[in-house]
């Protein structure tokens, strides 16, 4: 299980990538191209950052399939809650 672990250089490279992404998202917020676009860019960058933390810092890259499934299950179930909740909110205005 702990045979493969990220090397020090990988950890630092990931860290600098995370800081660069933070700078990017802070800068993108100042560059206004419409609230929805800004939101999507900010959330997209957050997703990439989370993926980096999960894969390298939390060593998901080096884990067996089972742990990956469990890591993904939480997000999948969150997506279920979001999608089905919005199947209500987004269609409330529709007139039959």
């Amino acid at each position: 299980m702990h045979s493969a672990a990220p090397a020090k250089t990988t950890l630092f490279a990931t860290y600098f990538a995370l800081i660069a992404l933070l700078a990017l998202s802070a800068a993108a917020a100042k560059w206004q191209i419409g609230p929805l676009w800004n939101l999507f860019i900010a959330l997209g960058i957050a997703a990439v950052k989370t993926a980096l933390v999960f894969l390298v810092f939390m060593q998901l890259r080096y884990q067996r399939g089972l742990v990956r499934v469990f890591a993904l299950a939480g997000f999948l179930w969150l997506a279920i809650s979001g999608v089905l909740t919005f199947s209500d909110y987004l269609t409330r205005g529709w007139t039959p």
């Binding site: 802070a26 206004q32 609230p35 939101l39 959330l43 950052k49 989370t50 933390v53 939390m58």
Partner: peptide, 24 residues
């Protein structure tokens, strides 16, 4: 413990744009 710490970090990674970056 590290897994937990990194995870709490990830929660903030999403709170940051949702709370601070939507003023535009």
């Amino acid at each position: 413990v590290g897994l937990y710490w990194h995870f709490v970090d990830c929660v903030w990674i999403f709170l940051y744009p949702l709370l601070y970056l939507i003023g535009g």
